[in-house]
Design a protein around this nucleic acid. Sequence first.
DNA 1: GTACGAACTCAAGTCAACTTGAGGTCAAGG
DNA 2: CCTTGACCTCAAGTTGACTTGAGTTCGTAC
Lengths: 145, 145
Amino acid sequence: MVLDIGEVSAKAGVSPSALRYYEDIGLIASVARHGLRRQFSAEVLLQLRLIAWGQLAGFSLGEIAGMFGRNGKPDLPREVLHEKADRLDRQIRELTALRDTLRHVAECPAPTHMECPTFRRLIETTGQSGRWQPRGQKRQPPLRR
Amino acid sequence: MVLDIGEVSAKAGVSPSALRYYEDIGLIASVARHGLRRQFSAEVLLQLRLIAWGQLAGFSLGEIAGMFGRNGKPDLPREVLHEKADRLDRQIRELTALRDTLRHVAECPAPTHMECPTFRRLIETTGQSGRWQPRGQKRQPPLRR
DNA sequence: GTACGAACTCAAGTCAACTTGAGGTCAAGG
DNA sequence: CCTTGACCTCAAGTTGACTTGAGTTCGTAC
């Protein structure tokens, strides 16, 4: 069973132009053409799920391709995958703290939060994560975002 | 005690140009100038922490400004803040699942993951989140990155 | 008092991830 | 057979978040 781009778009919630773009960069593949029209297998719906998932985590399309690219075979060595999982672990912890802070901010009646001790405690116990290296060494691609 | 831009940059791990940019867009403020040089209060170190935090969660600088902008006073109504916190909750759940999947991928010996039942189960149980609306209605700014 | 280095301004460039637009193709329905 | 609507290509534009570069201005140390 094949789908054409409009169906994939509707089912996956991804615009046709984005799908063409993903194909251009080799993140997904169409199985054939019907005249001009790309035909996709239902498989791509799962792949698109993974892609959306990776994006949510702030991975670039390049990283996502490395993790699941081409039929879910990771191109990356175990070691690197574990590293990404660890990065996610840290991120989950930070997000949890941020969520709590946000809820606090929503409720706390203090006029300016910088004076609220609960708030400051929440901030102060957060690990420094977004590093910027003063000179040399390439950076990670941004979040994205 | 005031800091000049180089010190803030070093302590916060944010480049001087990014700091100027944040000031331009009104996300942070310098307390004064010493000659040409911006002088920052130590306060901005905390603000920068919040900013990095928000970015990690995929919020845009605009959203971050709304949540904590100007001395941590949120400009946003409680309701919206709770909404953001809920968005974070969902995100945390997804990230947790993604992390587990990633660890599985790193270990599972299956030649192609799309055939591994554990893998498929992990993917299939993920909620659809990255919606694209076929026509009308403005979208949220992307992740970021 | 002069040289140094750290900051400054402002315009332009960059990168990822798409979107938009103009103009073309094609298969199925009437 | 002809129209229509969904799809196509390719180049160019957009947005957010910065960075880079050229040319300028200072405060501090010597």
